[in-house]
């Protein structure tokens, strides 16, 4: 679904990604871990072209993207992204947040967009919040709306960048549950998270990023019980 081939990304003199190779299969859930500054967010952002790679190749659903020539809006419409700080549109109600892109980008009719949005709100357990503004929601509710908003575009893959890191501990579960359901429905997902229980239970594969390179890629059991890299061992001790 996503194929990264020898990705390099620098900010000025700082090389953040140093040749990343990664292939995510359809319906696969990949959890991305690593210490702060290892390049997790940058990698995710390259996948939907919020950052442009300096070298290498990104292929989404069989199409290799040339970020200089291709219509990036079109590519991004197929790749959902959920942010740490939700980034809901504060001037729009919950339902307006969700129908915005389907109507503007996919030129969906309003009635159809609303119908789909309501189904999605139902799915994330917020059917009663359709007409409130985001500032009236808790963090967990905001993040679930943000997930519904991404899903409204019917993306082929969903990227999550620390979706629960900004939440109070008691609100984390409701968001993880929605993500878990999504995984079970067969959504292809790449998730950056520090929630190791989620990684253990939901991930098909856990990838450890360290100073811009992948140093470990294994199924959860192997990752936690028998990691091959010394730094992975240290990291696991740190987070467990």
């Amino acid at each position: 679904m996503i194929k990264a081939n020898n990705i390099h990304k620098s900010f000025g003199d700082l090389e953040v990604l140093k040749g990343i190779d990664l292939e995510v299969q359809p319906s696969e859930v990949v959890v991305l871990v690593g210490v702060s500054g290892s390049g997790k967010s940058t990698l995710l952002r390259c996948f939907n072209f919020l950052e442009m790679i300096n070298d290498g190749e990104i292929t989404i659903d069989g199409t290799t993207i040339n970020h200089k020539k291709d219509n990036l809006s079109k590519v991004r419409a197929e790749v959902g992204m959920v942010f740490q700080h939700f980034n809901l549109f504060p001037h729009k109600t919950v339902i307006e947040n969700i129908i915005e892109a389907p109507m503007q980008v996919k030129k969906k009719k309003k009635a159809a967009a609303i119908k789909h949005a309501k189904e999605l709100l139902d799915k994330v357990g917020l059917a009663d919040k359709a007409d409130v503004y985001p500032n009236k929601l808790s963090g967990g509710q905001k993040q679930r709306v943000a997930i519904a908003r991404s899903l409204a575009m019917e993306p082929k893959v969903m990227l999550f960048d620390e979706p629960t890191s900004a939440l109070d501990p008691e609100l984390v579960t409701e968001v993880l549950q929605v993500m878990k359901n999504l995984a079970e429905e067969g959504m292809t997902m790449v998730v950056v998270t520090h929630e190791m229980r989620f990684a253990r239970e939901v991930a098909d594969r856990i990838i450890m990023l360290d100073e811009g390179v992948i140093i470990e890629s294994a199924d959860p059991k192997t990752f936690f019980e028998n990691p091959s890299n010394e730094r992975t061992k240290q990291f696991i001790q740190l987070v467990e």
């Binding site: 939907n48 919020l50 990036l72 809006s73 079109k74 991004r76 419409a77 197929e78 790749v79 959902g80 992204m81 942010f83 700080h85 980034n87 809901l88 549109f89 504060p90 001037h91 915005e100 892109a101 503007q104 980008v105 943000a146 908003r149 991404s150 575009m153």
Partner: peptide, 25 residues
């Protein structure tokens, strides 16, 4: 900046993002 990024990530173009997300705010 998160507002424009969210908008871009949904597939909205630059001008759609300006008109519908940035200007009203």
């Amino acid at each position: 900046k998160g507002q424009t990024e969210a908008s871009f990530s949904l597939g909205m173009t630059k001008s759609q993002t300006m008109k519908r997300i940035v200007f009203p705010q």
